[in-house]
């Protein structure tokens, strides 16, 4: 059963940066945009498994550090013309606390 778990405060994640959450499910990358939105994706690029947490965040996308695929943070879908998807995890921000549903 999935449940909401508090993982950190918003300011623990750098703007346009990320943090890695370790879980029984594998690593999860949690991103913060310049507008302070927070998103979570499985930390594994659909291309060849690069760690998305190490990518560069821009707008609501992240560019994978390995070969430059771009993924939408809100859906995990690759930006066309590439095709693929990283699993998305629900995120909720209350006050400045970040909750992840897992």
């Amino acid at each position: 059963m999935a449940e909401w778990k508090m993982i950190c405060k918003v300011e623990d994640i750098p703007q346009l940066g990320s943090r890695v959450v370790t879980s029984a499910d594998g690593n999860i990358a949690v991103f913060r945009t310049s507008g302070d939105e927070v998103f979570a994706l499985r930390d594994k690029c659909p291309h060849k498994g690069g760690a998305l947490s190490l990518g560069l965040v821009h707008g609501t996308q992240v560019t994978c550090p390995m070969h430059g695929w771009k993924l939408h943070l809100d859906s995990g879908e690759a930006v066309a013309p590439d095709v693929g998807c990283a699993r998305r995890y629900p995120i909720r921000v209350e006050g400045n606390a970040v909750f992840l549903e897992i």
Partner: peptide
């Protein structure tokens, strides 16, 4: 775009710190 992309941000970061060496701050996120 709101924050550029993986092509322009590293370039802008370089141009800033090479133009204003002791003034502009390096941006690790770029």
């Amino acid at each position: 775009t709101p924050d550029g992309c993986d092509k322009c941000r590293p370039a802008l970061n370089y141009y800033l710190i090479s133009t204003w060496p002791h003034e502009a701050r390096d941006d690790p996120r770029s």
